[in-house]
């Protein structure tokens, strides 16, 4: 009995503990990233942004949380109740579950699985279900149309995201996310003889076109402006979320932001060297990896927020054209070029 406790139950408890810790940190982080998002947006438009709740408005997200929870959830009379309530849980649950494989520092992943990259790709391709179930179950025209548009958009950009991931893993030779980060210890910087500038070793410099494509595709995949055609706050209402209110709406909202932070983390891991320090200097190397990871994610989120503030919204046909006629051929060509280059030079 004691033996089975040590071999099965204790690891189980440790995993549950780790997951809870990650969940709490992630949710706190999102509360403040939401605040940063609104502040940046406000600053660009010469407004103040949230500044009433708490000092400098720091508690705004928590006030919003309480508001969402104590409001009455309204379920439309003709809605398919089960699916209607299931959809937000699917959206938020799937978004959160992708974080299980993200290594936030060396060896700091809940599940350091061999096919980590594929896992993230698989789960993020499932996130479409939250959208389409919500849109259909509302039993109303506009959510349904919004859901269809959103689904088409997400599926289109998944293709180019997939090819970008293929290029990176061609350079690395592993689907394990930790291996992808560790492979960025050696790269262009080391090769041209500047060993201390380890930020030159990362993939963003030798795969720069892929870095840009991934960033833009991530914006489209998460329905962020300039690709937020589904929500388009100034024209439509909220796409597939029109009929949702209070806690179910909050879950959709949460899922969306968790996915955005995940995309920032993915860009960090694939292109910006994950938890590695940008300069190979003694005291910088002693800074814990998670700090670097956090700073990089915050930087990328800032980029997401800035893009939201000053890029005009795309039209739907332009969005589809960009996805299928520009990004798909470009990323496919880059896969072929990278593979050929690696085969000829034997770089890896």
């Amino acid at each position: 009995m004691h033996n089975s406790f040590m071999t099965w139950f204790l690891p189980f408890l440790i995993i549950v503990g780790k997951s809870l810790l990650l969940l709490i940190v992630l949710l706190l982080l999102i509360a403040y990233l939401l605040y940063i998002d609104r502040k940046v947006w406000a600053a660009v438009q010469l407004r103040r942004g949230p500044n009433v709740v708490g000092p400098w408005g720091l508690l705004q997200s928590f006030a919003d949380l309480i508001k969402f929870i104590i409001k009455e959830p309204v379920i439309p009379a003709g809605a398919n109740k089960g699916v209607f309530l299931l959809a937000p849980f699917v959206a938020a649950g799937l978004a959160l579950s992708t974080w299980a494989v993200v290594p936030v520092s060396y060896g700091w992943a809940i599940a350091d699985i061999n096919v980590g990259l594929l896992y993230i790709f698989a789960i993020s391709s499932l996130e479409v279900y939250g959208v389409i179930m919500g849109g259909w179950a509302s039993n109303s025209k506009y959510p349904f149309l919004g859901a269809l548009r959103s689904t088409a958009q997400m599926i289109s950009y998944e293709v180019s995201i997939g090819f970008v991931m293929v290029t990176v893993l061609l350079c690395v030779g592993s689907l394990n996310l930790s291996d992808i980060v560790l492979a960025q210890n050696n790269g262009l910087g080391t090769w041209i003889g500047i060993p201390f500038a380890s930020f030159l070793d990362w993939h963003w410099i030798n795969l720069f076109p892929m870095f840009v494509i991934f960033f833009i595709s991530a914006l489209a995949e998460t329905n962020r402006p300039p690709f937020d055609l589904v929500e388009a706050e100034s024209e439509l209402v909220a796409g597939h979320m029109v009929e949702y209110s209070s806690a179910p709406y909050m879950l959709f909202f949460l899922g969306e932001y968790v996915t955005i932070v995940l995309m920032c983390a993915m860009i960090t891991i694939l292109f910006l060297g994950g938890w590695l320090s940008p300069l190979d200097i003694g005291w910088l190397n002693r800074v814990p990896g998670i700090i670097w990871f956090f700073l990089k994610v915050c930087f990328l989120f800032f980029m997401f927020a800035i893009v939201k503030a000053f890029v005009a919204r795309y039209r739907y046909d332009q969005l589809m054209r960009l996805g299928w006629k520009v990004f798909l051929p470009l990323s496919l060509t880059m896969v072929i070029i990278t593979a050929t280059f690696l085969k000829i030079t034997g770089w890896r």
């Binding site: 699985i113 061999n114 096919v115 594929l118 896992y119 790709f121 698989a122 789960i123 391709s125 499932l126 479409v128 279900y129 389409i132 259909w136 349904f144 269809l148 689904t151 599926i155 998944e158």
Partner: peptide, 26 residues
């Protein structure tokens, strides 16, 4: 068979089943 599991998710759940869902809904 972790690779097969992920491919099953990506191909069948992420693409084929969405197609089914589209057809049935529309």
């Amino acid at each position: 068979a972790e690779f097969l599991a992920m491919i099953l998710l990506i191909v069948y759940v992420g693409a084929v089943a969405i197609l089914f869902l589209f057809v049935v809904m529309m």
